[in-house]
Amino acid sequence: MATYAEMAEMYEDIKSDFRFDHELNGCLNCGICTATCPSAQFYDYSPREIVQLLWTENVEQIYDAMQEKIWACAQCMTCAARCPFKNSPGGLVSIMREVAIKHGMQSAKDVLRPFGRVMLKLITTGNQLSADMIQPDHFPDWGPNIQKVEGDLKVLRKAIPVKTLQTTETAWEVSLKTSVEMYTIWEMTGVMKQLETMDENLFDVIVDFIEEKREDYEDWLEEHADEKNDD
């Protein structure tokens, strides 16, 4: 349990995000956002509540909502399209999630654990999903019919008539240079730090992977330079 001062600090972090004033302009308490919110139908969650807590600066309950409720939001932005005040409850939730991560909240760690595979894929390849992740044994609830033609995944992917899509470990073929550029973005924008706070093991795996890729790229550049010199 956080102290009041810690909770107040989190609230300040939320408030000082430059999007905050953009996403919160007041609140009529009309409930239109909640009426159209898919998550409100299934969870103990209400975008109106989130907005009201922020609007009334209810520091303790904001902290409380960050434990679990904010993770119920489906980020569809239906609320944002409908709010007569031009608020974006879904956008406010995004800010609160970032702050929960920044402060290493245990709830955020728990919530994100099952998301690890997607994260690993995204951070290392720039694709969030790949053909080899959609295997029947990964999603038994999707039923037996998720592939209407039997066969080896590699062959089935080769039968897609677009060159960039003939991959299994990424959604499309991403050039090495592109991936290396993306690693620079992660490092320079604090994403690597976020990952370290949330899951150290995952972070270590990612760092190793990135180093390896960078070396591959350096090697490629050297080989390429040799070719040029040979000319």
Binding site: L122, G126, T164, E173, V174, K177, G190, L195
Partner: peptide, 26 residues
């Protein structure tokens, strides 16, 4: 259609909160 392209990374951002405006913008 070419290989020099990443995804927008926003699926991950909206799902996990990992990432930020700066990374999405870059």
């Amino acid at each position: 259609d070419e290989t020099d392209q990443t995804s927008c990374t926003a699926w991950n951002y909206h799902g996990s909160g990992i990432g930020n405006v700066e990374s999405l913008a870059a």
